[in-house]
Design a protein around this nucleic acid. Structure first.
Length: 578
DNA sequence: GGTCCTTTGAAGGCC
DNA sequence: GGCCTTCAAAGGACC
């Protein structure tokens, strides 16, 4: 399957970047390494990052325009977050310094995503339960942040107006999966949007050089990361920073001991108890939590489902003899080992957020069907929108790797006891054509037919891909806002893989008969998916944008489209430009 | 109760 | 470096 080159990836070759790049301290700061990563990616990078840079620069410009101070030089504008990132990475500010910074109003920086005004607070301390599992929704508590001062266009909110706020999207009470059931910071997180209305970041919080010190101001937490609602070094001294983060129950939100931030995961804001908790609960050693289902503050959290706690011994339990462990014990300990789940990727984050919306819009409940819809919508998202999720996912991985530095995705292999499939559907299609689903235990269900009634408003941008006006416009880009720039930033990779070409062609056909394709029951799910899925922009050859075969215009059905495509020289569609 | 389905992306292993 | 596999979420369906 041709993939939209993900920011972290550029394929598996660069795939290591997602985690490997975490080692360097500099990489901990989001936006710089956006650029860095993109530079490293050198063409293999996904589209999202190009837009991230756009967003960065546009944000800087926007902030400067707003503030009117524009104190930064050009070079500063080009590297708006460099210094702040270093500050962020090494939060060694004294409390007084931190307070001063905050009083300067320089503590925050405008969000790099003007349209992304919520903070995804993964329980502040960690989105991951002590066992590594993510607290289903509480772990990713999207808080719409109220920016008190900065004037941001209403249209620049995270989602379109139709899209309920993420908090509202939670269609169920967050269920903590781990027996610990309690994130140390959850009581401090408001789960209500009442406190947070989409607003604007204050203009004086723009990323600028502090006029007093000449030192670049620390970046806004949202720039640092959605996970880092407050910058480490100074958080603790700020009872209510600008009042835009309101404690739910009146307790001090972020107090931090004068000693400062010593936790190995310094990006997290925490008070004394949190700090100790982090040290104890979120260290890789996973020592037991202090209490069952209770935050150290004693405040229970609604997400607590069961107070049963699996004690994770700090030291491996030894056999009575002393230091030798029987295989049984070893096995037991192995079983006791907390299951650290993989960090969610961008699409998973998107699904998590949008699932409830899709479920509400449709009558579908089957996740497979929902996921098909979401998959299509995902592709219909503009790259900026996708970039948000890529960024979130990247931070998830960062956070995860910091919380569990020794964790490897390999650790989870085999834990699902997943029955090994004989072959991937994709391969089956390539090899056996349409007779694919026969081997599957469960026949592929064409869920897309059920989606017909609800997939038209696919994206907040109107999803031209779901119901495109013309193939060419739809192909040009998923809501490509600046095609020319995109082409510059991300030279179109001339995907010459047969599958990719087929996808392109199929996709072209899908614009003309997507509904028919969706309702088709004679195609395999993957074929249907191909028909309905937009091709990643990066894999579309320029010529392809201009040479949509006119013969598609009269294709009555996806089957016919497929037949045409199979018979038609693909080179007509995706003739390489070289 | 376990697995499948379905989606995309990340990561690791293998060649 | 490319390909393949597994897992991440979700919940109904199926065995």
């Amino acid at each position: 399957m041709p993939q939209l080159q993900s920011p972290a990836g550029g394929g598996s070759g660069g795939g290591g970047a997602g985690g490997d790049d975490l080692g360097a301290p500099d990489e901990l700061i989001p936006f710089q390494d956006e650029g860095d990563e993109q530079d490293k990616g050198a063409g293999g990078r996904g589209s999202a990052h190009g837009d991230l840079d756009e967003l960065k620069s546009s944000l800087v410009n926007e902030s400067e325009n707003r503030s009117g101070s524009a104190s930064g030089s050009d070079s500063e504008a080009e590297r708006p977050t460099r210094q702040p990132r270093e500050n962020f990475q090494k939060p060694r500010d004294s409390p007084a310094e931190a307070i001063r910074r905050q009083q300067d109003g320089s503590f925050f920086k405008g969000t790099p995503y003007p349209s992304y005004p919520f903070l995804m607070i993964p329980e502040l301390g960690s989105p991951y339960l002590p066992n590594g599992a993510l607290s289903p929704s509480g772990a990713r508590t999207y808080l719409q942040v109220k920016w008190p001062l900065l004037d941001v266009p209403a249209g620049a909110t995270l989602k379109d107006a139709r899209s309920p706020s993420p908090a509202h999207l939670s269609n169920k009470v967050p269920v903590v999966q781990h027996p610990h059931h309690m994130h140390p910071l959850t009581p401090l997180i408001t789960y209500s949007n009442d406190h947070f209305s989409p607003g604007s970041p204050p203009s004086h919080l723009s990323p600028e050089i502090d006029p007093k010190t000449g030192i670049p101001r620390p970046p806004h937490p949202s720039e640092l990361s959605p996970y880092y609602p407050l910058s480490p070094g100074a958080i603790g001294q700020i009872p209510h920073p600008l009042g835009w983060l309101v404690p739910q129950q009146g307790q001090p939100v972020y107090s931090i001991p004068p000693g400062g931030f010593r936790h190995p995961y310094p990006a997290l804001a925490m008070n004394a108890s949190m700090s100790s908790l982090m040290s104890s609960r979120f260290s890789p050693h996973m020592v037991p939590p202090p209490a069952h289902g209770l935050h150290p503050s004693g405040i229970p959290h609604p997400t607590i489902v069961s107070p049963i706690v699996k004690q994770e011994p700090t030291q491996p339990s030894l056999s009575p003899e002393g230091n030798s462990k029987t295989p049984v014990i070893v096995k037991k300990e192995e079983e006791k080992k907390p299951h650290i789940k993989k960090p969610l990727n961008a699409f998973m984050l998107y699904m998590k957020e949008m699932r409830a919306k899709v479920v509400a819009e449709c009558t579908l409940k089957e996740s497979a069907a929902i996921n098909q819809i979401l998959g299509r919508r995902w592709h219909s998202l503009s790259r900026e929108e996708q970039a948000k999720y890529y960024e979130l996912a990247r931070k998830e991985r960062q956070l995860h790797s910091q919380l569990y530095p020794t964790w490897s995705a390999r650790d989870n292999y085999g834990k699902k006891k997943k029955r090994k499939r004989e072959k991937q559907p994709q391969q089956q299609i390539q090899e056996t054509g349409n007779s694919v689903a026969s081997k599957n235990k469960k026949p592929c269900v064409q869920y897309l037919s059920a989606e017909k009634s609800c997939d038209s408003p696919a994206s907040s941008h109107g999803s031209m891909l779901d119901s495109p006006a013309t193939p060419s416009t739809a192909l040009a880009s998923p809501a490509a806002p600046a095609a020319t720039h995109s082409e510059q930033a991300q030279p179109l990779s001339l995907t010459t893989k047969p599958e990719a070409r087929a996808q392109l062609s199929l996709h072209s056909a899908s614009f003309l008969s997507s509904k028919a394709a969706a309702s088709s029951s004679s195609l395999t799910s993957h074929q249907s998916s191909l028909l309905s899925r937009p091709l990643p922009f990066s894999s579309i050859a320029p010529t392809a944008l201009l040479t949509t075969p006119p013969s598609f215009a009269a294709i009555p059905s996806p089957q016919a489209a497929l037949a045409v495509l199979q018979a038609q020289p693909l080179s007509l569609v995706t003739k390489p430009t070289d």
